Simulated assay, not measured.
Amino acid sequence: MTAKIIDGKAFAEGLRGRIAEHVAQLKAEHGITPGLAVIIVGHDPASQVYVNNKARQTSEVGMNSFKYELAEDVPEAEVLALINELNNREDVHGILCQLPVPKHIDETKIINALNPAKDVDCFSPENVGKVAIGLPGPVPCTPLGSLMLLRDHLGDLSGLNAVVIGRSNLVGKPMASLLLRDSATVTIAHSRTKDLPAVCAQADIIVAAVGRPEMVKQDWIKPGATVIDVGINRIKAPERGEGKFRLVGDVDYKGVSEVAGAITPVPGGVGPMTIACLLANTVTTACLANGITPPSDLTA
Rank of each mutant, 00 (worst) to 15 (best):
Thr2Tyr: 04
Thr2Lys: 14
Lys4Pro: 00
Asp7Ser: 12
Lys9Met: 11
Leu15Ser: 12
His22Ala: 11
Gln25Cys: 02
Lys27Ile: 11
Gly31Ile: 09
Ile32Val: 13
Leu36Ala: 03
Gln48Leu: 12
Asn53Asp: 07
Gln57Leu: 14
Thr58Ser: 08
Val74Pro: 00
Pro75Ile: 12
Leu82Met: 03
Glu85Thr: 15
Gln98Trp: 06
Leu99Ser: 10
Ile110Ala: 02
Ala113Thr: 11
Ala113Met: 14
Val120Asn: 06
Lys130Asp: 08
Ala132Glu: 01
Gly134His: 10
Cys141Trp: 01
Thr142Ala: 13
Pro143His: 07
Gly145Thr: 02
Met148Gly: 09
Leu150Thr: 13
Asp152Ser: 15
Gly155Arg: 07
Ser158Gln: 14
Val164Lys: 08
Gly172Leu: 07
Met175Leu: 07
Ala176Leu: 04
Leu178Phe: 08
Asp182Tyr: 15
Lys194Arg: 15
Asp195Ser: 14
Gln202Tyr: 00
Ala208Gly: 09
Met215Ser: 06
Lys217Ser: 06
Lys217Arg: 14
Lys217Glu: 01
Trp220Lys: 09
Ile228His: 04
Gly231Met: 11
Ile232Glu: 01
Ile232Asp: 00
Ala237Glu: 04
Gly241Pro: 01
Gly243Leu: 08
Lys244Asp: 01
Phe245Pro: 00
Leu247Lys: 04
Leu247Tyr: 13
Gly249Thr: 09
Gly249Trp: 14
Val251Lys: 05
Asp252Thr: 05
Gly255Pro: 10
Val259Gln: 08
Ala262Thr: 05
Ile263Asn: 03
Val270Gln: 05
Cys277Asn: 15
Cys277Glu: 05
Leu279Tyr: 08
Thr284Ile: 12
Ala286Cys: 07
Thr293Asp: 15
